[in-house]
Amino acid sequence: MRSWSWAKINAGAANIGPGVSAANHQRLTTATGLARVPASQATSPSTWYAASGQVNNLLQLARAIIRHIAK
């Protein structure tokens, strides 16, 4: 099962070909907010599990920091 969504992105300069205009290159690499370029992104159960794992790691880190501060 795979679903698709759209997200605003910035591209790495190394991923932009030489035929792209300077203005578009600038937008692709440095735009902020709504000026960023939309790109489709595939998501699947494996990406959902990876994201939940990252959230769990952050929660564990936050708990460890709180325990350290509370000492």
Results as ranks from 00 to 15, higher is better:
Lys8Ile: 10
Val20Gln: 02
Arg63Pro: 00
Asn56Leu: 12
Ala14Cys: 06
Asn24Leu: 15
Leu34Arg: 10
Gly19Asp: 15
Lys71Ala: 07
Leu61Cys: 09
Asn10Tyr: 01
Arg63Tyr: 14
Pro38Phe: 08
Val20Ile: 15
Ala22Asn: 08
Ala23Lys: 11
Met1Pro: 12
Asn15Val: 01
Asn15Gln: 08
Leu61Gln: 15
Ser44Gln: 04
Arg27Gly: 00
Ala51Gly: 02
Ala11Thr: 05
Gly17Leu: 06
Gln41His: 10
Ser5Asp: 05
Ser21Met: 08
Ser46His: 04
Trp4Glu: 08
Pro45Asn: 09
Leu28Gln: 02
Thr43Ala: 07
Ala22Trp: 01
Gly33His: 06
Met1Asn: 12
Ile9Ser: 02
Leu34Cys: 06
Ala35Trp: 14
Thr29Pro: 01
Val37Cys: 04
Ala31Gln: 03
Ala50Phe: 07
Asn57Val: 00
Ala23Ile: 06
Asn10Ala: 01
Asn57Gln: 13
Ala70Ile: 02
Met1Arg: 00
Gln41Glu: 04
Ala7Met: 10
Thr30Arg: 14
Ser44Leu: 04
Ala51Asn: 06
Thr30Ser: 12
Ala39Cys: 03
Val55Cys: 01
Ile65Ser: 06
Ile69Asp: 11
Ala14Pro: 04
Ile69Glu: 14
Leu28Ile: 04
Trp6Leu: 07
Ile16Val: 15
Ile16Cys: 00
Asn10Arg: 14
Leu34Tyr: 02
Ala50Gln: 07
Ala42Cys: 10
Gly17His: 07
Gly53Glu: 00
Leu59His: 14
Ala23Gly: 06
Leu61Thr: 12
Ala70Met: 03
Gly53Val: 04
Trp4Asn: 05
Ile66Ala: 09
Met1Gln: 10
Ala42Met: 13
Arg36Ser: 00
Ala35Leu: 12
Ala7Tyr: 11
Pro45Met: 05
Ala51Arg: 14
Ala64Gly: 01
Lys71Cys: 00
Ala39Asn: 05
Ser5Lys: 13
Ile66Pro: 00
Trp48Ala: 04
Leu58Ala: 15
Ile66Asn: 06
Gly12Ile: 11
Ala7Leu: 09
Gln54Ala: 14
His68Lys: 10
Val37Trp: 09
Pro38Leu: 04
Gly17Tyr: 09
Ala42Arg: 10
Asn15Phe: 03
Ala39Gly: 03
Arg63Met: 14
Arg67Asn: 12
Ala7Gln: 15
His25Glu: 01
Ala70His: 07
Ala35Glu: 00
Gln54His: 08
Gly17Phe: 06
Lys71Tyr: 02
Leu28Glu: 01
Asn24Phe: 14
Asn15Leu: 08
Pro18Gln: 11
Asn10Cys: 04
Trp48Val: 04
Gly12Lys: 10
Trp48Cys: 01
Ile69Val: 15
Ala70Phe: 02
Asn56His: 13
Lys71Asp: 09
Trp4Val: 15
Asn15Cys: 03
Ser52Tyr: 02
Val37Thr: 12
Val20Asn: 03
Gln60Ala: 14
Ala7Ser: 11
Ala64Tyr: 06
His25Met: 10
Gln41Tyr: 13
Gln41Pro: 01
Thr47Asn: 05
Ser44Phe: 02
Gly12Gln: 10
Ile9Glu: 03
Ile69Gln: 08
Ala64Thr: 12
Ser3Pro: 03
Ala11Gly: 02
Lys71Ser: 09
Pro45His: 04
Ile65Tyr: 07
His68Pro: 02
Ala11Ser: 13
Pro38Ala: 15
Leu59Arg: 15
Ile16Thr: 03
Asn57Thr: 07
Val37Pro: 00
